[in-house]
Design a binder for these strands. Sequence first.
DNA 1: TCATAAGTGGACGCCGCCGTCCGTTTGGAC
DNA 2: GTCCAAACGGACGGCGGCGTCCACTTATGA
Lengths: 226, 226
Amino acid sequence: MVEESSRIADPGLRADARRNLGRILVAARAVFAEHGIDAPMATVARRAGVGVATLYRRFPTRDALVRAAFAQQMETCARALTEALADPDPWRGFQRLFETICELQRQEQGFPAAFVAAFPDSTAEHAQARERAERDLTILVRRAKAAGALRADFHPSDLAVAVLSHCGLVAALPHDSAASRRLVAYLLQSFRAEAAHGALPPPSALSLRGFPIAADGSQRQRPSRA
Amino acid sequence: MVEESSRIADPGLRADARRNLGRILVAARAVFAEHGIDAPMATVARRAGVGVATLYRRFPTRDALVRAAFAQQMETCARALTEALADPDPWRGFQRLFETICELQRQEQGFPAAFVAAFPDSTAEHAQARERAERDLTILVRRAKAAGALRADFHPSDLAVAVLSHCGLVAALPHDSAASRRLVAYLLQSFRAEAAHGALPPPSALSLRGFPIAADGSQRQRPSRA
DNA sequence: TCATAAGTGGACGCCGCCGTCCGTTTGGAC
DNA sequence: GTCCAAACGGACGGCGGCGTCCACTTATGA
């Protein structure tokens, strides 16, 4: 927490400013987790015990705040890729990469939304980092295929597909980690070269209550959960 | 379109009112597809060529409008379940059910969001329809397992997991139907009892540009796509 | 043709969020 | 201890969406 904010903080920042910045990031994660990344900026400021002006001085846009708040998680993802590449068993590396990302999204509410929101980020910035990540992933995929563990028709973009769909699941069911684990297990099994089913984690307790399949079509406008 | 609105419309409605109601539903789908289900009500009204008052008279809450707008799709889902149950080959029924739902979400932008938003609907209403859907799905799953096509450890809630994650994917990449198809294919293969890989649809053209794995951690707050 | 009630639409007041401005406080250098 | 620039925070004007109210229009049936 402390070293995290100091990592982001300008070292030339005054002591109180640095402290406030740390508080803001903590508050932002809490508020975003609780109310989503569209929560009012003032709510974050209040939670952090600072004025709105202070918040806006550090983070001119909500987007900047979101990025900063989840920079740690993003970095963990990046590190997971590096570690995956370093693993002598490429499949194990691949598997851990995917599981790490999904676990992060499961734990840190609001991170999935930030992840998705940041996804089509076409700013030229970080271009080199992105390219490296893409290259690294391609290498990892090639190795895992060569090892006979990853199916031959797997495409690197499939990892993005898997992660994004997992994001959506977690966003829809923020407290159902069983569902998340279930999805991860299913996907990993379908990515394996030799198509053998392993054991699955226990299913979600999720009932189908409200599952829209149940619509009977006779509905009329009416007030509802609002 | 016409018969759809008449299905929903009170038959005692005056002719112009019925016409406007139809326009509203069409406009709502278009606007929700374009701007998401949180688009201003006034936008829907303008698009429909009616005043806001008319819109509010028919649909007191945004939620009511969303439900009505996508009632057709919901019903299609319900019908798909019935058809799946009627299919002599339970696996084919199951597969088609899942594919139909996903295709609907792919086609009708905004439907996934409506689907997810409606999901934890705990109003007592439609309870019987929901129960029936749940029961039907359970039967379908049991049959497909008995036929040796669906893996034995599949749980009915896994369909919800699959659908919700697909919702999330479509929401994140509204125009990438290749990604959606890929996910569906992966999931269906991992649901099969005999773990054999079939051919996959072509991968998404999605590059990893902006994939948050690429974060380099050196970032600072800054303006961005906003 | 006319009476009437159903239907319409836009103007309007309300509210919550945004982002800035400015008077006040405080850290830290000397 | 003194000073000042950095930092602070809250008040405030602006904006945009919400939902209602009411004077006007029109379908319908006698």
